[in-house]
Write a protein that binds this DNA or RNA. Sequence first.
DNA 1: GTCTATAAATCGATAGAC
DNA 2: GTCTATCGATTTATAGAC
Lengths: 191, 191
Amino acid sequence: MTNSVAPTRRRGSDKRDRLVAAATQLLLEQGIERTTLADVAAAANVPVGNVYYYFKTKDDLVAAVVTGYIERAKAVLHEIEIKYRTPKARLRALVRQLTAHGDQIAETGCPVLCSELGKRAGIDLSQSELMKNPLVWAEDQFRSLGRTDARELSQQLMADYEGSALLSNTLNDPSILRAMSRRLLAWIESM
Amino acid sequence: MTNSVAPTRRRGSDKRDRLVAAATQLLLEQGIERTTLADVAAAANVPVGNVYYYFKTKDDLVAAVVTGYIERAKAVLHEIEIKYRTPKARLRALVRQLTAHGDQIAETGCPVLCSELGKRAGIDLSQSELMKNPLVWAEDQFRSLGRTDARELSQQLMADYEGSALLSNTLNDPSILRAMSRRLLAWIESM
DNA sequence: GTCTATAAATCGATAGAC
DNA sequence: GTCTATCGATTTATAGAC
């Protein structure tokens, strides 16, 4: 009984990881529908046909990208909890984290891909950890601050972030995201 | 010299209009890339091949949809200017207008399609009237209120709208958009 | 496990009859 | 102007050699 799993992760080959990494970047830059498996394979230096050894369908590859994003986000939230002990400091850290790569966001748009994912069949984003995790996390922080409207505040925070990311991308102007970041930090400070 | 134009609008046929109307709805519901010309033709009750009599390419059809959106938005802003004379009343009317069809927005997402349009070749959204018109219009209203940071306020307004529309769609919850509407109205009121 | 070659399906676009 | 039939390119996916 070895500890090998599925037709995935095996010692000595990082092809699967390279494919997910390449897909993560390309899906963001070009969008899901405009990115072909050939694009991904080329960027990962993997022959096209071999992609199907690791992912049965394109949807599976997209799902792997989303899972990767969810895991990274989870790790970031966990690190913030360890590093900062007060709700305010944690919320500030979240805002800084979200807007940290502002220039890239201005180029690629919302890094969550939700507007596209929601239009793909078989995905119920409202139940996905993709948005739920950060929303619930921020809600918990606001509640720790004694706010009874924690849910609404959390949604407001994420909406402000997503909206300014979208506008930054549309107008190709990173300063919009930075302005929103300043505003959110002041807002949290004033609580 | 008649008043007929291009291979378009002719007395007695509304095929072109039907195609644009069908495309407008389908692009919103399914996204640009996932909507085929066959989809549009079927929804408009027009044979597939005939689409190309009215639009040389799919991009042309998309452009017609965008133009239609820009014209309608322009008309709405113009009507608001006629109906309301103070900047505050005008801004309130804009917010109400933007969030008027909240339930549909929760289903289809941002009605401006900017996240998808930006990823299509040959479109510079930062120069398009699509976002520029409402942004400049709101900026003018804020400036009339004596605000020197009118530009930033206008961007903030549109980012809040886009973000809450996106989140409403992602979580399939129209109340998020309504909450943002209330918040924006109070914000304008307090100026 | 890896890769090449190719099948199968989809879709944008065109030709040409009416 | 309208419509049918179909081409050609692209892309997802599979078969099968190594």
